[in-house]
């Protein structure tokens, strides 16, 4: 990894304190290279989503997550900082697993973040919306219905709309949480193509449970196992020449068994708020 580092973690540890304590991340230190697509992989419940969300402090909306360690965006920490939280989250964007349109028109879904952060004139906003919808290959499909509710699009279109929405605030890093797992194969392919185009320009960190997807899309791979970092390498070396024994098993196991069962990883992150209710 000779490239510039966009974001790196140092001894990141996340614990969910509920009626039972769960350590989701256990001292992870790693780096994500600039303008590359890094895939975070690992078995279900190993802390992939937590890892991703801790990179822009989104895990904090769960009431009982405790974190230690630090994440450096460039040179500055995002936890020990005076910078307001929303500004950090603007710089590190997030696209959730479920395609989620905000309750706004297609146009305003894209313009939402931009409107919050800057003073754009109407024509500037028009241009901005168009350029980002083009960037995610959605413009031609929606240009005649920009005022319709975003949720009336198909799920694949919504997921690309989410990408456009996140990109419209010009983030330095984009976090994608299994963005194709809720989509049908054709839509998933379209989203993958979009990501393929985007990774030239953006630093993208993507959680995926599909090894094939990681192989197809990722430049680098980070392998997590039970909250610990096992191995990180460029994709080719990772799959062809895994260093760690566990990685070897995992890569081999995957080729033998179809590793596509629904992840119950969510149970680690989502169980927490339920328990407090």
């Amino acid at each position: 990894m000779s490239n510039e580092t966009a974001i790196r973690t140092e001894d990141l540890e996340v614990t969910y304190t509920g009626n039972r304590e769960v350590t989701a991340l256990d001292g992870v230190s790693t780096e994500f290279a600039e303008n590359k697509l890094t895939a975070i992989i690992g078995p279900s419940g190993c802390g992939k989503s937590t890892m991703l969300k801790s990179l822009n402090r989104l895990h904090e909306i769960q009431p009982n997550a405790e974190i230690s360690g630090e994440v450096y965006l460039g040179d500055e920490g995002i936890y020990d900082t005076d910078e307001p939280l929303p500004e950090i989250r603007r710089r590190v964007g997030y696209v959730p697993q479920t395609p989620t349109a905000l309750p706004l028109s297609i146009y305003n879904n894209v313009a939402y973040g931009a409107k919050i952060h800057g003073n754009y004139s109407n024509s500037e906003l028009d241009d901005l919306v168009e350029s980002y919808l083009r960037k995610v290959n959605l413009w031609d499909e929606v240009k005649d219905r920009l005022d319709d509710p975003g949720a009336e699009l198909s799920t694949g279109q919504i997921q690309r709309l989410c990408l456009a929405r996140s990109l419209a605030v010009e983030p330095e890093v984009l976090l994608c949480d299994e963005v194709t797992s809720a989509l049908d194969p054709i839509s998933a392919e379209q989203v993958e193509e979009t990501l393929e185009d985007l990774k030239e320009e953006y630093t993208i960190i993507m959680v995926t449970h599909s090894m094939d997807q990681a192989k197809r899309l990722a430049d680098d791979v980070v392998f997590l196992y039970l909250g610990e970092l096992v191995e990180t390498n460029d994709t080719r070396s990772f799959f062809e020449n895994p260093q760690n024994e566990r990685t070897q098993e995992f890569v081999k196991g995957h080729t033998a068994v179809d590793y596509d069962d629904e992840p119950d990883e969510e149970s680690v992150t989502d169980e927490q708020p339920v328990a407090t209710r």
Partner: peptide
């Protein structure tokens, strides 16, 4: 769904926004 909150916070909106 929490995704709505995450989506909005994820583009840098404040909690109130």
């Amino acid at each position: 769904p929490d995704e709505l909150r995450e989506s909005s916070l994820g583009v840098g909106a404040t909690k109130w926004e």
